[in-house]
Design a protein around this nucleic acid. Structure first.
Length: 234
DNA sequence: CGAGTTTGACCGGCGC
DNA sequence: GCGCCGGTCAAACTCG
């Protein structure tokens, strides 16, 4: 797995360098990832007891086609408190609260992607007010205790694939849906554009590296990432 | 019996 | 004011 990861990283890195060279030659359009949302929007929420200053974090997770659960393994333990079918998406949206701390304000919504039902879109609201992530916990099904969970995502037979991990805005999530919905002809160009924009985002790079590292060892800390990962800035 | 899920009811913001 | 809609509540239920 390490070898595969390493080789893919090398390919991606070289591809990134090529793209950066081309882009440095001339254009500064499409500043993706710089979309600013009014903070007041989040603070308006009636029952929001703890203000959330940052825009929501969105994670896209690929699941097995046969897997119809709305479980996103992200290292935290979540308790489901509601489910709704929304107007814009026939798939039900599940609402989760963090259950690792008694008054943790963190919440998340999980819903299947409109265009690809094998992809789960998890939207996070609020920040955890407790430090340690639990390596193996998740939005666990009923009756499953933490001790029953597998020691790391790498061993998880549900074989979920983190597609991307970044602080995407609503605009970005719509964009990726548009990209996914393209037919094969010409879609590669759009995908490359989008990948290049993601790679240029340092938050995305760090988040992705962290997620991959955690999936392998479950033990790598942020400081280790800062020290060991040499992320190209050009 | 406790912890977690399900699901219909309820609440409040928002647009018309 | 009214209706729609997303988010939340809470009683009933399930499971270990």
């Amino acid at each position: 797995m390490l070898e595969v990861l390493s080789s893919k990283y090398t390919v991606l890195k070289s591809h990134l360098q090529e793209i950066n060279k081309e882009q440095h030659k001339g254009m500064s359009s499409n500043q993706r990832g710089s979309v600013t949302e009014p903070i007041t929007d989040a603070n308006k929420r009636r029952r929001l007891e703890f203000p959330t200053a940052k825009k929501p974090l969105q994670i896209f997770v690929r699941t097995l086609p046969t897997d119809d659960s709305l479980i996103v393994k992200d290292g935290y333990q979540w308790r489901k408190y509601g489910q709704k079918v929304t107007k814009d998406n026939a798939s039900p949206r599940a609402y989760f609260r963090c259950s690792m701390a008694p008054i943790c304000p963190a919440k998340k919504k999980v819903q299947r992607c409109l265009h690809d039902k094998s992809i789960l879109v998890a939207t996070y609201d609020g920040e955890h007010n407790h430090g340690a992530l639990h390596e193996s916990s998740s939005s666990t099904p009923r009756g499953s205790s933490v001790a029953k969970q597998l020691p790391s995502m790498a061993n998880d037979k549900e074989a979920m694939d983190i597609l991307a991990l970044s602080r995407w805005s609503q605009t970005d999530s719509r964009h990726i849906e548009e990209v996914m919905h393209q037919d094969n002809y010409g879609s590669n160009i759009k995908v490359e554009e989008y990948v290049s924009s993601l790679i240029k985002d340092p938050e995305f790079t760090m988040s992705l590296a962290e997620a991959v590292a955690r999936s392998i060892t479950g033990e790598i800390k942020q400081q280790d990432l800062d020290l060991n990962l040499n992320i190209p800035e050009e």
